[in-house]
Structure formats: C-alpha cells, structure tokens
C-alpha cells in the first residue's frame, strides 16, 4: 500500500526536516496504530518520546487523515487505504 506522511508545525524537525515522505507500507501495517509504530521505527530520526506515547502519538500532536481530524476517523483503529495522506502536526512548539 502506498501512502504519504506529512509533518508540520515543528514535527518535521524529528524527521530530518522532511515535510513529506512517500511510503510503501508492508502488508502487516494496516491501521493507524500500526502506522505510528512503523513510522517511529523506520522514519523518526530523533527523540521518540516527543513523537509517541504508549501506542499512540504524544498528546498535543494533531493527526489529520486525508485532511480530517483523526478524532473523526476512529484514531488508532482507522484502517489505512491506498493513497491516504496522514499529517502529523505538533502543537507543542512555542507560539
């Protein structure tokens, strides 16, 4: 499955400054829960504690699935689909 990860609001700093990564997912990554772990293991460059907490993202990180708040899409249980765009936005950076 091909999806796109985007990072914004300072989140990109944990991913080597990349704002967008096109990703080919292995077949065992099917939900947002899987994707967060996969992203942490394969793409995160530093300080995992600033990205994940337990099996989810750290509170204060906003997640959008195809431009909609993931709270409307089932959060961790969301079943990924081909061409999904997943955005992680940090709100914890200074304002």
């Amino acid at each position: 499955m091909n999806i796109e990860l985007q990072f914004s609001g300072g989140m990109e700093l944990l991913f080597d400054g990349q704002r967008s990564i096109k990703v080919v997912l292995p077949s065992n990554v099917t939900t947002m829960r899987d994707l967060i772990a996969h992203t942490k293991d394969h793409y995160l460059k530093e300080r995992p504690e600033l990205f994940v907490q337990g099996d989810s993202v750290r509170p204060g990180i906003l997640v959008l699935i195809n431009d909609a708040d993931w709270e409307l899409e089932g959060e961790l249980e969301y079943e990924l689909a081909e061409k999904d765009v997943i955005v992680f936005i940090s709100t914890l950076h200074g304002g």
């Binding site: 914004s8 609001g9 300072g10 700093l13 300080r47 600033l50 204060g60 940090s90 914890l92 950076h93 200074g94």
Partner: peptide
Amino acid sequence: STECTYSVEAYR
C-alpha cells in the same frame, strides 16, 4: 516553529 535554542526544557 522551532523551539528556542536555549530553552532548557525542549518543547513544553
């Protein structure tokens, strides 16, 4: 959106 370089506590 970069945190201050000198902030002891990274992030909040």
